[in-house]
Amino acid sequence: MWCLKTLTQLCKNSLTSANTNYTCIAGLKYFPPPIKYENIEKVERPKLRIMERQPQHPPNLRPPKMQKRLRYMRGPELVHNELLHKQYAIVATGGGRLRWGHYEMMRLTIGRKMNINTMFATWRVPAPWQPITKKGQGQRMGGGKGAIDHYVTPIKAGRVIVEIAGKCEFVECKGFLQQVANQLPFQATVVSQQMLDEQKLDEERLARQNQNPFTMKYVIQNNLNGCHRWLKPVDHKWFGKHL
């Protein structure tokens, strides 16, 4: 085993024998200016509030049942697809349903991991409101619609789920937001306002520089190669972008 003194002596001998000249140069380092958080307002409750498990109906009203209505999950989100605080958020990239357990998972995980002195979180989705019915195991077919089992919130692609804002950078909150996004029942991603702006500019640039006239929209609208025989109605509406 080589001791530290022996290794140091060998290094000195090798540097001396090599006759290497070293010149010390003092350079000017560049550090980016700190981010100014001038328009950030501190809220009273920085953590996410508890969502109700089911909607509250009047005592004299029987809870209404509902059909599946899968159209509530298909297609892009056209309203709640932008960030209000212009900082960071979890955005759905596919359709699905949120149950009450997913709300609690997001609330507890974000509440434990985020710094309440510099950050605050806000919901961008309502509490579960759509009833899902279910029949008991072993029952015969027929007999009417089953009883309400639980309530969900349908989500479309592009919907903002949770927003994080405050005096913080993207690196500070990306870790626990990605942990939450991985446990959701649909595909979701963590984004910042800068990422959304760049994505929008890239889409506009690709559409502007496209030289191929046979886009998916042109092909479907003109029934090229008889594609109307096997296309779905949702393809005629969104031109193959959403399932």
Rank of each mutant, 00 (worst) to 15 (best):
Q9E: 09
C11I: 08
N13P: 00
S14C: 04
S14Q: 05
L15R: 05
T16G: 08
A18L: 13
A18W: 06
N19D: 14
T20L: 15
Y22E: 12
I25V: 15
I25D: 12
G27R: 07
G27T: 09
L28K: 14
L28P: 00
L28G: 00
F31W: 07
F31P: 00
K36A: 13
N39T: 11
Q54P: 00
Q56C: 11
H57I: 03
P58N: 11
L61D: 00
R62T: 15
P64K: 09
K65I: 13
K68V: 01
K68A: 03
K68T: 02
R69L: 09
L70D: 05
L70T: 04
Y72A: 15
M73N: 05
G75D: 11
P76A: 11
E77N: 14
N81E: 08
N81L: 05
A89P: 05
A89T: 08
A89S: 14
R99Y: 11
G101P: 01
Y103N: 04
Y103I: 03
Y103H: 03
M105N: 04
R107M: 06
L108Y: 04
T109A: 07
K113T: 13
K113N: 13
M114C: 13
M114E: 04
N117F: 10
M119R: 02
M119W: 03
F120E: 04
F120K: 01
T122N: 00
R124G: 14
A127R: 02
Q130L: 15
Q130Y: 09
P131S: 09
K134D: 13
K134H: 09
K135P: 01
Q137H: 14
G138Y: 13
R140D: 09
R140G: 10
M141Y: 13
G142D: 15
G143K: 06
G144A: 08
K145M: 15
